[in-house]
Computed example of a mutant assay.
Amino acid sequence: MRQKKNVSCPKSKRCPIRYDARSYTVWFDRSEVTILAIGGRIKLIFELAQYYRQYLSWKNTSADLIRDKKGRWWLHIVMETDNPKVTPINETVGVDLGIVSPATDCRGTFYGEKHWKQVEDRIFELRRRLTSKGTKSAKRHLKKLSSRQARFRRDCDHVLSKRLVQSVGKGATIVFEDLTNIRGRAKVRKSQRRRLHGWSFAQFQAFVTYKAEAKGIAIGFVDPRFTSQKCSSCGHISRSNRPTQKDFKCKKCHAELLADHNAAINIREDFLKLRGSVNNPFVSTDDLG
């Protein structure tokens, strides 16, 4: 006879209320919204930040009413619009996401700030000290620190993705490596494991994707195998081509360049070869005869 397992049900003190087009109406021109409540519809006045006025021409769909820890009420409105129709151009930019440098493209442009790593190192040291204490106060501090670190990384990814998308033209293509399950497959030095597991590459790629779609830029992916070991000049593949994490020196043709730049060039070339093999028409011997 099987024993029943007690499963706890998730609870929330501030569960958001979801509204659809029938249960709320918003007028952005006069900063008013009506929402359906138990006693009927309620009219409310709201404030809209200047940044969000760029989306007023979009169509509003659902909305979530949320109360934060400080007792303030927020209405999160989902806006949608069609992707712009843009003619593709002959511009393909490969981007390598690294542990040392957050992002590098095939043109040799490095994205990121030096002080970001310093902030991450300070947070890591503080987390280690708080964890060793193990007091209730330290645990509360750790919880706040985790939220602060997540907000910091999210802000960095927004800055990086915006810079990258603005660097290419409408109709271009940005290509990344397919980094699915990279944490389980990657072999890195012990000193780099912490940075690998704290790497928010999926969030960064998601930010680039939606920013690129709004501008009419396509996103592509390639197999990440050998992109960091292959020489972008002669195609020679060898682990010994990487004497250090930062540098690349081909053992065959002796080409030297930064490792992330070399990988970004390979990402671009692999995507162009893949796209060329897909787009090439099949020609039979009967057609030639």
Results as ranks from 00 to 15, higher is better:
49 A>E: 13
262 N>A: 01
241 N>M: 06
120 E>M: 14
183 R>W: 09
128 R>I: 00
50 Q>N: 11
285 T>F: 12
285 T>G: 06
216 G>W: 00
213 E>G: 07
49 A>C: 10
268 R>A: 06
153 R>L: 15
115 H>N: 11
275 R>W: 11
271 F>C: 02
127 R>W: 06
48 L>C: 05
53 R>C: 12
245 Q>A: 13
1 M>H: 13
277 S>Q: 13
176 F>C: 01
279 N>R: 13
113 E>G: 13
185 R>W: 07
1 M>D: 08
35 I>S: 02
269 E>P: 14
132 S>I: 04
151 R>C: 07
238 S>D: 15
84 P>Q: 04
195 R>L: 10
251 K>G: 04
126 L>P: 06
189 R>N: 14
101 S>D: 10
29 D>V: 05
232 S>W: 12
213 E>I: 07
110 F>L: 06
139 K>E: 02
214 A>T: 04
270 D>S: 07
26 V>L: 12
198 G>Y: 03
26 V>F: 00
40 G>C: 11
94 G>T: 01
28 F>G: 01
47 E>V: 12
62 S>Q: 05
66 I>A: 06
94 G>C: 06
52 Y>H: 07
255 A>N: 03
277 S>H: 15
16 P>K: 11
41 R>T: 01
187 K>I: 14
245 Q>Y: 07
131 T>M: 11
32 E>F: 02
58 W>T: 08
61 T>F: 06
46 F>K: 08
70 K>M: 13
136 K>H: 08
43 K>Q: 14
215 K>G: 01
117 K>T: 02
160 L>A: 02
230 K>N: 10
218 A>P: 09
144 K>E: 00
52 Y>Q: 07
21 A>G: 09
136 K>T: 12
17 I>K: 04
179 L>K: 01
276 G>V: 05
188 V>W: 10
14 R>W: 03
186 A>I: 08
180 T>K: 15
107 R>P: 00
13 K>D: 10
137 S>T: 04
208 V>K: 03
126 L>V: 02
97 L>V: 01
112 G>M: 12
144 K>M: 00
69 K>V: 13
138 A>K: 10
193 R>Y: 15
237 I>G: 04
253 C>Y: 08
8 S>D: 09
214 A>K: 13
123 I>L: 02
65 L>E: 00
176 F>K: 01
167 S>T: 11
206 A>T: 10
30 R>V: 02
44 L>C: 14
260 D>N: 05
223 D>Y: 00
176 F>L: 00
76 H>S: 12
228 S>M: 08
159 V>S: 15
24 Y>A: 02
204 F>N: 08
105 D>F: 14
104 T>P: 01
266 N>Q: 08
95 V>D: 00
245 Q>T: 04
70 K>G: 11
107 R>D: 03
120 E>K: 14
63 A>W: 03
103 A>N: 02
17 I>V: 14
183 R>Q: 11
87 T>E: 13
183 R>A: 04
146 S>T: 09
